[in-house]
């Protein structure tokens, strides 16, 4: 069996590609839209990815015809960070955002993330 010694590089590439997938605004294959914040900022997203990563989304898509979900209560930067986590597992949170992030990661059933944030809150 061949062993790939550059496994970390391959993983890096994988994450970068998913980062692009998430950031690219002209994403034709996107099949639903998330709008968040008071100004309804639009994120193009993928049902397949978000429902796999979050049980909450999986539940929402049980209603098959839904193709736009609006979260007026979630601020745009928070939504962005949550989606970035869903696509790439990267987390960049400032201390002031911790509580807000915890509420929504919990709501979205991102269990690993909310566990992480809980620990951060206790530490700070």
């Amino acid at each position: 069996e061949i062993k790939n010694e550059n496994q970390t590089i391959f993983k890096e590439k994988f994450i970068n590609d998913f980062q692009n997938l998430f950031e690219n605004e002209n994403n034709n294959y996107s099949d639903f839209v998330i709008k968040s914040g008071k100004k309804y900022f639009q994120f193009n997203s993928h049902k397949s990815i978000s429902s796999f990563r979050s049980l909450y989304f999986a539940l929402l898509f049980k209603e098959k015809s839904i193709n736009q979900i609006e979260f007026p209560e979630i601020r745009k930067p928070i939504m962005k960070k949550i989606l970035e986590y869903i696509y790439t597992s990267k987390i960049q949170i400032s201390k002031s955002e911790l509580i807000e992030m915890w509420i929504f990661s919990n709501q979205f059933q991102l269990n690993l993330l909310s566990k992480f944030i809980e620990n951060e809150i206790i530490k700070n």
């Binding site: 209603e63 015809s65 839904i66 193709n67 736009q68 609006e70 979260f71 007026p72 509420i103 709501q107």
Partner: peptide, 13 residues
Amino acid sequence: MSRKMILRVPKFQ
């Protein structure tokens, strides 16, 4: 494209 179905999620309790 199919009919647009929008789900508005209000603030959680």
